[in-house]
Amino acid sequence: MPLPITRTSPFELPSTPGASRDLAGASLALWFDDPERERQAAQRLALCDLSALPKAGYKGNGATAWLQTHQTPLPAETFESTRLTDGGIIVKVAADEYFLEAGPSGVDLPVPSNGEFPPDCFPVVREDASLVLCGARAAAVLLQVCGYDFSTATLDRVIYTRVAGVDSAVFPAAGYPHTHVKLWCDRSYAVSLWNSLVEICEEFEGPIIGAQALFTDLP
């Protein structure tokens, strides 16, 4: 039975989605007007809100050991990442801390079967806004908002930097159909960041799209 919708995105979206899917109590917009047009826009330039994807953080000396019992290989070095089975991402954000974002198919994030975390592993609420800038012109947009040289960045490695004045974790992602940069930032700053990106994307004729264009395996 689907959960009632209790989670909402921080962003104002352009219109009611043409299709959406429920994801752990949130609604993920799949497309707005025309899925085919959005696929094309994703090649060129588009902005997508993925804040509905469930996220979690784990901290403490026991975090690595506990996650290893639950997950596919963990990233070895700080700022590196590995993938969850459904396309989700695990990032090692510090020596004793991990950040997980589920993929779009709604696979549950790890929780202890008895509800009790082992000593020295503490869950951390992660409600970061999650958005994606994709397409060939994404680099041009980033040049207007960020002083980091992404042309030298390693794929699938997180970069903590300032984007349009907002401290963000930027993740140039590999393995997607298009050039694809993911940004996570504190939810309270997210509307400011989103509005700046929307304004710049509009100048480059990049629309807001749904998640379907980003994930080939979505219906």
Partner: peptide, 10 residues
């Protein structure tokens, strides 16, 4: 030391 060279406003 962790994040490498960055502009001072970071």
């Amino acid at each position: 030391p962790l994040n490498g060279p960055r502009p001072i406003q970071e």
